[in-house]
Design a protein around this nucleic acid. Structure first.
Length: 317
DNA sequence: GCTTAACCTGGACGC
DNA sequence: GCGTCCAGGTTAAGC
């Protein structure tokens, strides 16, 4: 029996006992618009739906005896109780316990990360938001990416009205039509920098394709989706893989960035130390992760990536 | 096939 | 206060 006391709100909470670490999931660098209010409630937007999620800090910390408590309280707006949206977005169907065991057998070093972030999941994000959000990620910091993506949504996205005073003004992500006619100078002012013209050009390109082209990539194979994305000006292998992994259900994909490269060198590819991240090296690292961790290698790399990110941030402070 | 520079910007850091 | 470096990359040119 769960014994949590979620904050009193002018709505009823639903509760889920799924294995889910909300904080790790929403701060691991895969999505950019979630915010936490002073009551520690997370507020996010999934298409036209607002999601409010609360979980007591540190799942399991409250455990008395051996029972682990993993209660996650949630609600959707303006239409309440959309358990389908909640479960789909957080991908509650993926059996984490079995994956942890498989991964640890392959690479013992991952065990520490799976313990530290137990319940962290990859999200199934709306494709449009994920596609444009990661345009901002090139040579940037997570804090600035979040600032820029939020600014883009606030400027060009429709506000979602709620039947109570929410702690934040929440917007839908802008439509492709709005982005295609966005003002480059305005985007630059919102810190998009040299990425601003790319966003507009990519939106115009999407409009020139068949309707629903972007969303249709979810039903294509990884190699097809990757090829379609990297054919676009401004999208290289890494950004394409982020899009494939975080919104197109390509769970075996490992986007190789500076952090993942360091992990690969440390764990299983010391011969790549000091080498530039050429397409050949990129493919070598990506395939090494896939061969070790299998169909959910992208999930495994997220645990190692997040642990590395936290370590790097810690040592900088 | 690899290396390099340019592209924006703000925060961290050293002086 | 100021200069430099770096951050979840991509592209094109030069070798």
């Amino acid at each position: 029996m769960l014994q949590f006391s979620p904050p009193k709100m002018p709505f009823d909470w639903n509760v889920s006992e799924a294995l889910l670490h909300v904080g790790a999931t929403l701060t691991s660098g895969q999505s950019f618009r979630w915010r936490q209010d002073e009551r520690e409630i997370w507020w996010g937007v999934v298409d036209a739906c607002v999601l409010a999620v609360w979980q007591e800090q540190g799942i399991g910390d409250r455990g008395q005896g051996t029972e682990e408590k993993t209660g996650v309280f949630w609600q959707t707006f303006p239409e309440p109780n959309r358990s389908d949206i909640f479960a789909d977005y957080f991908r509650l169907d993926v059996p984490l316990e079995a994956l942890y065991q498989e991964w640890t057998e392959q690479e013992p070093e991952i065990e520490e990360a799976t313990r530290a972030f137990r319940g962290m999941r990859l999200l199934r994000q709306p494709v449009r938001e994920c596609f444009f959000g990661f345009q901002c990620a090139t040579c940037n910091t997570v804090v600035k990416i979040e600032r820029s993506v939020r600014a883009l949504a606030a400027r060009y996205g429709d506000e979602i009205s709620l039947p109570f005073d929410a702690p934040f003004v929440l917007h839908q992500f802008p439509t492709v039509e709005r982005l295609a006619t966005a003002d480059e100078a305005v985007l630059r002012a919102d810190l998009w920098g040299y990425r601003a013209p790319r966003v507009i050009a990519l939106a115009q390109h999407i409009l020139s394709r068949e309707p629903n082209w972007l969303a249709s990539l979810r039903s294509r194979s990884y190699s097809e989706a990757h090829a379609e994305l990297t054919a676009l000006h401004g999208i290289g292998a890494k950004i394409a893989d982020c899009i494939c992994l975080f919104c197109l259900d390509k769970d075996a994909v490992t986007p190789v960035d500076t952090h993942i490269r360091q992990i690969a060198v440390r764990l299983f590819a010391p011969q790549l130390s000091g080498k530039s991240l050429t397409p050949k090296v990129y493919a070598e690292i990506s395939e090494a992760f896939a061969s070790r961790f299998g169909a959910f290698a992208g999930w495994a790399q997220q645990y190692l990536f997040f642990a590395e990110l936290r370590r790097a941030t810690f040592f900088k402070k």
